[in-house]
């Protein structure tokens, strides 16, 4: 079999355009996921019975179903159920937000609860309200412990965007698929796609490792 690596050069602009969409979905999705996950995680850790139950149900529902099913549901079932038509990009954003949020919630809960009770008591004992203890004392300590598992989730979510091929979002994997369908250069194109993913996840790892190095785990 003969390889023709020059096709990669020819299609590189198209692949990079796909990668751009992948990055766009990942960044928006993770920003939302971190907000949602932090909220749900804190509800789990410190909420009353009702808040805790709501967050628990959300986390279990999302962790217990495959992300592909979640995307399919958002894109194909929701319009039928609620007469709510959403475009593929919005479904993709929403899927990453909701999915990453559930995993991040558990990461946040674990990090906050791993900080010794004594520090919370020390904060309360000088007369701070509980929320200020969380913001000024426990939060900054928990944040340091969040980084490694959060990085893991960021990478998983980035790769999960490839599943949006099923609803026709033009991200990197779908772009590769389309190019391949026109020229049948499977080895070259999929190699290029894999390498572009590696560059993206590698960059993410590097950023996280730099942050981690700057902050001592206490």
């Amino acid at each position: 079999m003969e390889m023709d690596w020059s096709v990669i050069i020819d299609f590189l602009p198209q692949l990079l355009e796909g990668a751009r969409t992948t990055i766009y979905i990942t960044v928006v999705g993770l920003l939302g996921g971190v907000v949602l996950g932090t909220l749900a995680g804190l509800m789990r850790a410190y909420g009353g019975r009702v808040l805790n139950a709501i967050a628990f149900a959300y986390i279990e529902l999302i962790r217990g179903t495959p992300i592909v099913v979640q995307v399919m549901f958002l894109y194909f079932a929701l319009p039928v159920l609620a007469d709510l038509r959403i475009d593929p990009m919005s479904a993709a954003f929403l899927a990453i937000i909701v999915n990453a949020g559930a995993y991040i919630a558990e990461i946040v809960r674990g990090a906050f609860l791993s900080i010794g009770k004594g520090l919370t008591e020390a904060g309360l004992a000088i007369g701070l309200p509980h929320w200020k203890v969380l913001v000024y004392i426990i939060g900054p300590l928990a944040f340091r412990r969040l980084i490694p598992p959060l990085g893991n989730q960021f990478i998983v979510s980035l790769k999960d965007t490839s599943l949006f091929i099923v609803i026709g979002v033009g991200e990197l994997t779908r772009t590769g698929q389309e190019i391949m369908a026109s020229n049948f250069r499977a080895v070259e194109i999929w190699t290029a796609v894999a390498i572009i993913y590696l560059v993206m996840t590698g960059t993410l790892s590097l950023i996280l490792r730099t942050i981690e190095k700057r902050m001592r785990i206490l």
Binding site: A122, P140, L141, L218
Partner: peptide, 12 residues
């Protein structure tokens, strides 16, 4: 004011 057995200083 309270002083604890394990000090509980804010480590950061």
């Amino acid at each position: 004011g309270m002083v604890f057995q394990q000090f509980n200083l804010f480590p950061q």
